[in-house]
Design a protein around this nucleic acid. Structure first.
Lengths: 129, 129, 129, 129
DNA sequence: GTGGTCTAGACCACG
DNA sequence: GTGGTCTAGACCACT
């Protein structure tokens, strides 16, 4: 369900968050679904339980999941909406990145080509599911 | 010349590197230009000299500037070429970002619009100099 | 494991780099091996942790080791290849040194004798491991 | 008479020393010859007089030249002998360098080739004078 | 004055 | 515990 790269500079808990977001966006996880318990996931991934806990807490804080003590963690109802608005902020990140590339002398055609390629790649991946 | 956000998660020395790269790309700094001395910049920004030193050392290592002990730091001749090839790698960053946005349900038109806007903004800024 | 000469003109962090390279070349360190932690090594050598950090960072930058925050520093898989290509540049250093010796009136036979002695010494040391 | 590289990491005063040694070894300078005055040389090379002074002082200390206040600096009688013995120490440097190259996996043939090339290059240069 | 190195000691994020 | 960053302040060599 999750694959973590212990050597990455990106913290493991952030990797977990990203991958859980992806699972939501691709529809593999839906509102109300129960997430693996901290303990089981920590054993499965050979990761410190604190790290799982940190990822869940962050997603809880964002309103993407809620935890029921003694029962487990569940995807919240409005997770997709929260996630979408959260990601929409990244359009600004995209803009600053494009500006940098433009200043660096990268041709507009190269940028648009990369964007188109990435977008269609992503769509193909989703319809394949 | 530089603006530092001490609260940012991005290390100060990386902020300095990024901003110095921007100054190069916008033409504010050219090959042969002398950079502010480690001490003067540290006082101006209220930052420890070691932090400036670290930024300069990294840029020296990349071939973007060269330091002459006792004289100062200077923009190297091939800085633009080094910088361009360096930034070109960020096209891949762009691709992964676009893929995320696509998965988040952002419409392709929104993405392309943002890209176009950012690119033309950047170009206008450059020709205005 | 390391010996530091604080009075040397060669910076301590460079001494560490050189010695670590030697340990790699002699086979005392192999790919995947974990290096002493910054703190433990600093205490053992009575050296400031920052100095160790600087040496490790440089070797990380060269691809000889990789650091995993929270875990430690490890010899990278392609360390030998990186090191070999890096050292090959020193053939030019050898040439300039020989030229100086030649100008100084040192006989060619003395030079060749020294080279042969050093090379066979080194080989004997390696096969003795 | 001298060419200095202001961008080199090697201090200017060491560059001066090396080049003066070369002039001695090639016979361009002989015992009793008068060296350029600190002032004239500093103007000619666009270098701070202190830097020239430092080079001369070091050579004086080694017994290669002596200064006569009010008259100038002169090559001492036993300069060649001093220089030769001084350089002979570099045979040890050569040995350690060769050992490093051997450990790095550089083939003995490559090393010997480099040595031969450098030596004959040097000899040709000397007889051409 | 310059860049470069080092120490002492602190804080942070991560596991 | 780990690596990484930062500050404060010092010393050095060089110009």
């Amino acid at each position: 369900m999750f694959t973590i790269d212990a050597l990455s500079r990106q913290p493991i808990y952030e990797q977990l968050i990203s991958q859980l977001e992806q699972l939501l966006l691709t529809g593999s996880l839906k509102a109300g679904d129960r997430l693996p318990s901290v303990r089981s996931l920590s054993m499965q991934l050979s990761i410190n339980p604190n790290t799982i806990q940190k990822a869940y807490a962050e997603l809880d804080h964002r309103g993407i999941l809620y935890s029921v003590p003694g029962k487990g963690c569940f995807i919240s109802e409005n997770a997709p909406a929260v996630l979408s608005s959260y990601k929409r902020k990244e359009l600004r990140t995209l803009e600053t990145l494009v500006k940098e590339l433009a200043l660096a002398g990268i041709e507009k055609s190269s940028i648009l080509e990369a964007v188109n390629k990435a977008y269609t790649d992503s769509e193909r991946g989703r319809t394949d599911d």
